[in-house]
Design a protein around this nucleic acid. Structure first.
Lengths: 215, 215
DNA sequence: GTGATCTGGCACCGGTCAGTGTCAGTTTGT
DNA sequence: ACAAACTGACACTGACCGGTGCCAGATCAC
């Protein structure tokens, strides 16, 4: 992004090349989508609302996206990427100790969810039941979270003792458990303190890990 | 909600009183909603499609429901009631043995989901992110499933050793675990045999129950 | 049989929104 | 200075759909 015009045909405008301007507009649209989808919901969102929030006009919407479903996919990827990174970073802070890694990952997850309620709404609610294409993305993202769980707990699991699909299904269940706890937590009218939900989630994870470890 | 006729002032028609006819039409609409919402999804569903599926005209839609959201709530209740009953019946078959009760409940749950894919779609996907009213219903239903879990595992839990919210959160997590396993299972292109997913879900449940028991 | 009641089908209205086009005004390169 | 490129605002179309109204024909009560 250094030299504005390399193979670009257009002019510079307000100090930016056409490519850069286009990417800036796209990023603003994704941000606006996170805001609108995450607060009012995908269903009631319109292209106009998104563009108004982004401070752009509809023309620029169709410059970057085919339709609002494409934008939903982009917003979904943006949110889940950040969330997964945060969780993995939280796990990494735990060093080699499995329990500390699990606690770190859980803490990072629930913190992210609590800090920005738009995240769980987009990641776990708005994205469901939209259409086949989005369902595929949802499934892929869920798998990536399952993979992340396997990475975090991997070292403590006796891989020879259990078939692979069993471990995957267990990890899927653990993801579901944490997700559902988070979902009910953010929807609750007087929610438990974050330490309490982390502790409950931790109980489930460590109970299952106790079954899997080489003990 | 539109008010059904309270008095039986009308005539009989095709051997049924006005009240009965009205309820039959309502039931047909709910069935059609389960079919349409469960296969094409709520978002793409229209009042006309529902009515065509039910073999009725729009007029009768507004006789029983204010709008399509009200119908969604009815279809949701219908599906989740049947599902919860099935699970509790499955648990009841296990008698006093906790492990058999858990297995029975899990078996009934995964069987229901496998037999009718419309059930998980309506119960766990279509209903999310529709609107505040539906969210409330979703939360209430989820709580009722958590309650059902607590009923099934209740006898084996040392209630004095754990605060109530902790048990509820754990049960919420268990519901989420089973749900997520089921969701990924039905979405999978070559799914595991039902015994395998039941076994994995059972591993999680019994691991957590092991933590809670007075043992 | 006859009139009242009920049913299904259809047409219509009004609103919303995706997607496209236009155009005047601004910024840039020369 | 001037033309080309770019931007933002708005108008417009066409489709869809929720909701209402109307009517011709079927069914029932008497």
């Amino acid at each position: 992004m250094s030299s504005p015009r390399l193979d670009e045909t257009g002019r510079t405008y307000r100090g930016a090349g056409p490519r850069q301007r286009q990417e800036e507009r796209r990023a603003r649209l994704v941000d606006a989508a996170v805001e609108v989808f995450g607060t009012s919901g995908y269903r009631s969102a319109t292209v106009e609302k998104i563009c108004a929030t982004a401070g752009l006009t509809k023309r620029y919407f169709y410059e970057s996206f085919d339709d609002s479903e494409a934008l939903l996919l982009a917003a979904y990827a943006s949110v889940t990427d950040r969330l997964r990174d945060s969780v993995l970073r939280g796990a990494g802070d735990g060093g080699a100790d499995l329990d500390a890694r699990v606690r770190g990952a859980l803490t990072a997850f629930f913190r992210s969810v609590a800090d920005d309620p738009r995240i769980p709404r987009i990641a776990f609610q708005e994205v469901l039941g939209v259409g086949p294409e989005v369902d595929i993305a949802y499934r892929r993202v869920t798998r990536s979270f399952v993979d992340a769980v396997l990475v975090v707990i991997g070292p403590a699991v006796d891989r020879t003792a259990f078939p692979d699909f069993h471990l995957r299904t267990l990890a899927t269940g653990l993801v579901g458990a944490v997700l559902m706890i988070a979902q009910q937590w953010v929807l609750s009218e007087n929610p438990q303190p974050i330490e309490a939900v982390i502790a409950s989630a931790h109980t489930i994870l460590s109970a299952v890990l106790g079954e899997l470890g080489p003990t």
